[in-house]
């Protein structure tokens, strides 16, 4: 007869290390899907985690969905193979919605409802290599909750500890309009990562960190000079990066070519409509991160 202990040893959570019962669908501790355990165990390479961070409504899901779809279509000489059907769900969700000119629904706060993408990626340039990547689509609200109260979402803390590269998405359109919200959120997020690394005062975080200025179609100057834009409009973030992160680069990206709003008389809200797509700068930050893995 198999004991619980013997069974659990074979089913350790990849993310937090907690032991789970055989047959469990999600980790009992951090809620990460355990299907990944089986898929990873079947491979010979250790996967690396790339985290896509950003506040709610910044466009993490859309960005990640398009990125994965582009990779699977061999953009920029990449080849991407999804491992497990669940890995395709995110890109299918995003692509099917955007093709119908609607944004995908908001990502749920609960970790067991997130999309997890596990891909084997072949990068031809600069030198041919295979990378196994795990990229979860985390909810912005969950990130905000974890940042303000650490260990609210254990899975986030575990993911960030294991992360080999980070893409921090920042709403450039809001920043260009004078809002300080994107700046403060990004600072909180990086400050959380900095404190988690427990680096000494004179040490800086070395994890490749791409600051991705999203919705840059609203402020075209982002594309011309992303660094200059960040320095001018996201100065708190800029300074923190200068002080505490040694491997940072700034990028601008946009996915939506034109944005409309559906509205009706008497309604006090509008629904944003992506009238058409025009991808700009989606691959570059990912390329920059994977070049260093």
């Amino acid at each position: 007869m198999t004991t619980y202990a013997e069974a659990a040893v074979e089913n350790s959570c990849l993310i937090c290390g907690a032991r789970n019962l055989v047959g469990a669908m999600v980790c009992c501790d951090c809620q990460a899907p355990l299907a990944i355990v089986h898929d990873v165990a079947a491979q010979e390479r250790d996967p690396q985690i790339v985290t896509i961070l950003g506040e709610s409504n910044v466009g993490k899901t859309v960005y990640l969905g398009f990125l994965l779809d582009m990779l699977t279509q061999r953009a920029a000489d990449y080849e991407a193979i999804p491992k497990g059907a669940y890995s395709v769900d995110l890109q299918q969700n995003v692509i099917s919605h955007m093709a119908r000119r609607t944004f995908p629904p908001k990502t749920a706060m609960e970790a067991n409802s997130w999309y997890w993408a596990y891909y084997q990626i072949y990068q031809r340039k600069p030198a041919p290599k295979w990378i196994d990547l795990l990229m979860p689509d985390m909810a912005g609200e969950s990130l905000a909750a974890e940042v303000s109260t650490p260990n609210t979402f254990k899975v986030i803390r575990s993911l960030l500890k294991l992360s080999a590269g980070t893409l921090l998405l920042v709403d450039a359109a809001m920043a260009a309009n004078g809002s300080t919200q994107p700046d403060f959120f990004a600072v909180k997020m990086l400050s959380y990562i900095d404190s988690m690394h427990q680096a000494k005062r004179d040490e800086r975080v070395q994890t490749p960190t791409a600051i991705v200025l999203c919705k840059a179609d609203h402020c075209p100057e982002c594309f011309d000079h992303p660094r200059r834009f960040a320095q001018a409009n996201l100065n708190r973030l800029w300074n923190l990066c200068e002080n505490r992160f040694s491997n940072v680069e700034f990028f601008a990206t946009s996915v939506v070519g034109s944005l409309g709003y559906a509205t009706a008389p008497g309604e006090d809200y509008v629904t944003p409509i992506p009238l058409h797509t025009a991808l700009q700068g989606v691959l570059e930050p990912f390329q920059w991160v994977t070049d260093q893995l």
Binding site: A262, T263, E267, I273
Partner: peptide, 9 residues
């Protein structure tokens, strides 16, 4: 849109 709401910019 599908709910017959006008789309504006």
């Amino acid at each position: 849109d599908e709910l017959a709401r006008t789309v504006v910019g």
